[in-house]
Nucleic acid binder design. Structure first.
Lengths: 118, 118
DNA sequence: ACTTTATATTCCTTGACAGGAATATTCAAA
DNA sequence: TTTGAATATTCCTGTCAAGGAATATAAAGT
């Protein structure tokens, strides 16, 4: 079977915001409580909470409440899906240089085949 | 050397728009002129042109004018960079289950070390 | 019971961006 | 050199999302 890869835009738009991308990159080094994220990225706590909510809604992070604090941690799944989606492009990177030629041949063939309009 | 992967948000926000993502997924199958993209995705030509401009600005596609038409084609680079960026997360997917424990240990160590405020 | 600490939520304003409609540009064909 | 086909651009409008400021909530310490 040849599954057609369709990508989820929620993941992409969550990552597209620079501060959120930074948060994700920070969490790559391990789980962090909200306050520490705010400190390290020099953001105000409320904005960090809001960004974390978006990341959480898109499944990119999960929370672990510990006492007073809430520890945020990366969830692999969405990034793995992104990886799988990219997989479907890898084969193309190799044949790349033939693509345009192929298209042109296809085009010529079509026009040579008949003079009438398709 | 251990390069810290930083990702470009232009690529991500270009891909985050559903119609643009569809265009990219369509171009995965080969180069296409604007009109055909519009037909296949049932979009109006002007919007397609506008989306293609965004994709072009972010380096995701390149144009090849052929007579009257302009053939758009994927450029591998931005997707490859995305792939490289994801690479930096792969190691995490394995140690994942230890992460939270590690963090808690770290936390305990810190608190056990002294009673004074840091 | 308060007070403090950590985090989340709400309200407001502003800017970016997507789609629609109309128009401009470019090239080819007659 | 006018006409037509393919594509790009402009202008307008509405929507949505991000940041700031203030406030709410929740748990811990005293």
């Amino acid at each position: 079977m040849n599954y057609i890869q369709v990508m989820n835009t929620m993941t992409l738009s969550a990552l597209a915001e620079p501060n959120r991308l930074h948060i994700v990159e920070l969490l790559r080094d391990g789980p962090r409580p909200v306050g520490e994220i705010a400190d390290r990225l020099r953001l105000h706590q409320p904005q960090v909470s809001k960004h974390l909510r978006v990341l959480s809604d898109s499944g990119l992070v999960e929370v672990h409440p510990i006492a007073n604090r809430r520890i945020y941690m990366l969830r692999p799944q969405p990034l793995q899906e992104l990886d799988t989606w990219l997989e479907s492009f890898r084969r193309i990177w190799e044949q790349r240089f033939d693509q345009l030629d192929d298209y042109l041949q296809e085009l010529q063939a079509k026009e040579g085949r008949s003079d009438t309009i398709e």
